[in-house]
Write a protein that binds this DNA or RNA. Structure first.
Length: 719
RNA sequence: GCGCCUUUAGCUCAGUGGUAGAGCGUUCCGUUCACAUCGGAAAGGUCGUAGGUUCGAUCCCUACAAGGCGCACCA
């Protein structure tokens, strides 16, 4: 035994050093483990990707929780002798990053991206993304995550770009990607389309106006958006509605607020007889459901709102170019003046807003690229395939209840709009020359072609993540060895955005599932249950906590009491509590090592058999606890595993077993001293192994004191 | 409208078909050496409400209530 341990464990003085030691060993990389004989070549594989954090800034507690869960599973697998790969990376997060940088430039230089131009703007974004990336990497390391940095990837780097273009081409050739003029969600603020999943709804009070288009129009209709009514091409009623049956099929020409309208009366089951007047003014260009109705009834489409959310009514100069809210007032005035407004009542409506920019969504028709989720390929559609792999059990979702949520989402899924009018992202691999269109991985060689200016939805590239990180489209060994990955661990809030899209992309492209098990963790909230966010000022910074209490304590605070899929309420007190545990581990070790007999030889530990029934009982209990902890980890019940290990160490090992040995150690005969010491030493070392996945730094720090050349990280976890 | 979750000690949460546990907090006691970032002890719960199944329910079923969430509708 060399130097005695200090009375306290100092995370600040140890963590960085230990992480460097791990990195230097090369054992985050499974190839190196095999090379050095730490892992058997034929060993079972444990592979997992790190959900790539967005390069929009810092990591928050949610990321820390994710890193903690994954690192525990990864370290456990590695100590179990599995061929363990954890791939790190970052996500370019197209819209999120672009809008963040746009805001910064606006604030600092009062310029828009158009002032800078595409090339210069992208340079700026890249600089920002690089800085953000570096911060993220530092933070991942600070949390102790044992990821294989040699395989680090970025959703927008060259290998991933090739994967994206190849995937696009493959899907286009199969007819699963098409270009179509459809009503999409337009974000006037971000000046781009967004997918259905990027739309968030907020309930607001609104007025419902009941009116007639003109004096002699037979059916009154109700609306919350009178300004869109200049785009109506039909009035829809329910097929069984006796009030209106006689009008169905009739067509009327009216002049509404100076705009000539041609209105056809149609019958469609989508109409609710009870709502409003039971008749709907159909605006095919500015409503998803109306557009679908228009498709069914072959109605014309009349766009009257442009991309700036302004009116397009050249017939009425006074209205033309007005913002929608001003236009609403204008129409209401006109209705009142002409005595056509019948009723005005309070109602609540869900206002659709773009998730990233907060812009109020304006549905409008636009020529965009879509993934067709209802087209057959290989005897089924993407929708059916996504459903099948979960119902068949090829993919298991934990907690199971989210499987229902997943099915529900699939059943309501519409074609996925993948083109965005932003600059930061994967440029769509399509080129145009007049009427010609060219789709391929690389640009056409002859002249005159122009590439589509749009970029792809960021989730298109993240959807390929489990295999683009393994080298696809190249047939790499990594791909053969590690795909499908064993586990995907992520927050339930991106089940649709990401998990579902990965299943979709992988299912089509590789005819595989991307992962066997999906483990969904909850969101980290503050002690009052509020979602942590910078703007609310209630965010607890994982790095600050790690500096204050150690990464081990921060990790454990995010694990204990956090059942899968349930939100985690976190307070600084809790983190402090687990810092105390790290101290306890340190001091228990300190005590044991202080009592090491002169000239102690560690060889004795190997074949040591307890001499008393009591010691035998202690060892039995230890083995039981360790096995139970392992079982919990294997069932992804980390909260139970951590609590059990914690409880055993503190209240059994420290409180009872150590206390019981004190008399012998203090005043016993040499033989008893040795016996007691070996017992404690044995249990201590086993505990270090058992606790290492949860608290890697403090356990490794102690282990290095005992075995200066050893590495706990790759010590075998035996049964 | 469809669906999901939560409701257990002051707080945060575990948990089991046989009348409840942990951590933190609180109160009291303790500082001759592993640790006061500690140890010991104590107080504190009719396990949301009402029914049902059962020999027996906090745990199973039904209804209800409160809180939260997802999806759809939102004319």
């Amino acid at each position: 035994m060399s130097e005695p341990l200090e009375t306290r464990y100092d995370p600040g003085a140890n963590e960085e050093k230990i992480y460097k030691l791990w990195e230097k060993s090369g054992y985050f990389n499974p190839d190196k483990c095999i090379e050095d004989g730490v892992t058997q070549k034929e060993a079972e594989v444990f592979s997992i990707v790190l959900p790539p954090p967005n390069v929009t800034g810092n990591l928050h507690m949610g990321h820390a929780a994710m890193l903690a869960v994954e690192d525990i599973l990864v370290r456990y697998a590695r100590m179990r002798g599995k061929r363990t790969l954890w791939i790190p990376g970052t996500d370019h997060a197209a819209i999120a990053t672009q809008s963040k940088v746009e805001k910064l430039i606006k604030k600092e230089e009062d310029k828009s991206r158009h002032d800078l131009g595409r090339e210069e703007f992208l340079k700026r974004v890249n600089v920002f993304a690089k800085e953000s990336h570096d911060t993220i990497v530092r933070q991942i390391k600070a949390m102790g995550a044992s990821v294989d940095w040699s395989r680090e990837a970025f959703t927008l780097d060259e290998p991933r770009s090739l994967a994206v273009r190849t995937a696009f081409k493959k899907m286009y050739d199969a007819g699963l990607i098409y270009r179509g003029n459809r009503v999409i969600n337009w974000d006037p603020k971000g000046q781009t389309t967004v997918s259905d999943d990027e739309v968030v709804y907020e309930e607001r009070k609104a007025k419902l106006y009941t009116f007639r288009y003109s004096k002699d129009f037979p059916i009154p209709v109700a609306t919350t958006r009178p300004e869109t009514k200049v785009g109506d091409t039909a009035v829809a009623v329910h097929p069984d509605d006796v009030r209106y049956k006689k009008y169905v099929g009739e067509e009327y020409d009216v002049e509404f607020a100076g705009v000539p309208l041609h209105i056809k009366i149609i019958a469609d089951p989508a109409v609710d007889k009870e709502f409003g007047t039971g008749a709907v003014g159909v605006t095919p260009a500015h409503s998803h459901t109306d557009w679908e109705m228009a498709e069914r009834h072959k109605l014309p489409l009349k766009q009257i709102i442009d991309e700036k959310a302004r009116m397009m009514t050249p017939e009425v100069p006074a209205l033309n170019g007005k913002k929608v809210l001003e236009a609403r007032e204008f129409i209401l005035m006109w209705l009142k003046e002409n005595d056509l407004l019948l009723k005005e009542e309070e109602t609540t409506q869900n206002v659709a807003a773009a998730e990233r920019t907060g812009g109020i969504i304006e549905p409008l028709p636009k020529l965009q690229w879509f993934v067709d989720v209802s087209k057959q390929f290989d005897r089924e559609t993407l929708k059916q395939m996504m459903r099948r792999v979960v119902t068949d059990g090829e993919i298991k979702i934990i907690p199971e209840r989210f499987e229902k949520t997943y099915y529900h989402w699939i059943d309501n899924l519409r074609d996925w709009c993948i083109s965005r009018q932003i600059w930061y992202g994967h440029r769509i691999p399509v080129w145009y020359r007049g009427e010609e269109l060219y789709v391929d991985v690389d640009a056409p060689e002859d002249k005159g072609w122009e590439q589509d200016p749009d970029t792809l939805d960021t989730w298109f590239s993240s959807g390929l993540w489990t295999f683009s990180t393994l080298g696809w489209p190249n047939e790499t060994n990594d791909l053969k060895t590690y795909h499908p990955t064993i586990l995907l661990e992520t927050g339930y809030d991106i089940l649709f955005f990401w998990v579902a899209r990965m299943i979709l992309m992988t299912g089509f492209i590789l005819d595989q599932v991307p992962f066997r098990t999906v483990y969904l963790h909850g969101l980290v909230r503050d002690e009052k249950g509020k979602k942590m966010s910078k703007s609310l000022g209630n965010a607890i910074d994982p790095l600050v906590m790690s500096e204050k209490y150690g990464a081990d304590a921060t990790r454990l605070s995010l694990i204990v009491g956090a059942a899968p899929g349930n939100d985690i309420k976190l307070s600084e007190d809790k983190i402090r509590g687990y810092r105390n545990f790290a101290t306890k581990i340190w001091n228990a070790a300190r005590f044991v090592l202080m009592n090491e007999p002169e000239g102690f030889d560690t060889a004795i530990l190997k074949n040591w058999v307890p001499e008393t029934k009591k010691d035998e009982g202690y060892l039995k209990e230890l083995t039981d606890v360790k096995r139970e902890v392992a079982e919990h980890i294997e069932k992804f019940e980390l909260h139970l595993a951590a609590e059990k290990a914690y409880h055993y160490f503190w209240h059994t090992f420290a409180d009872k077993i150590i206390e019981a040995q004190k008399p012998a150690l203090k005043s016993g005969e040499e033989k008893d001293k040795l016996g007691s010491y070996v017992l404690l030493r044995k249990i201590l070392e086993e505990c270090l192994v058992m606790l290492h996945p949860f608290m890697p730094f403090v356990t490794e720090a102690i282990y290095r004191r005992i075995y200066p050349e050893g590495l706990l990280m790759v010590k075998k976890w035996e049964d």
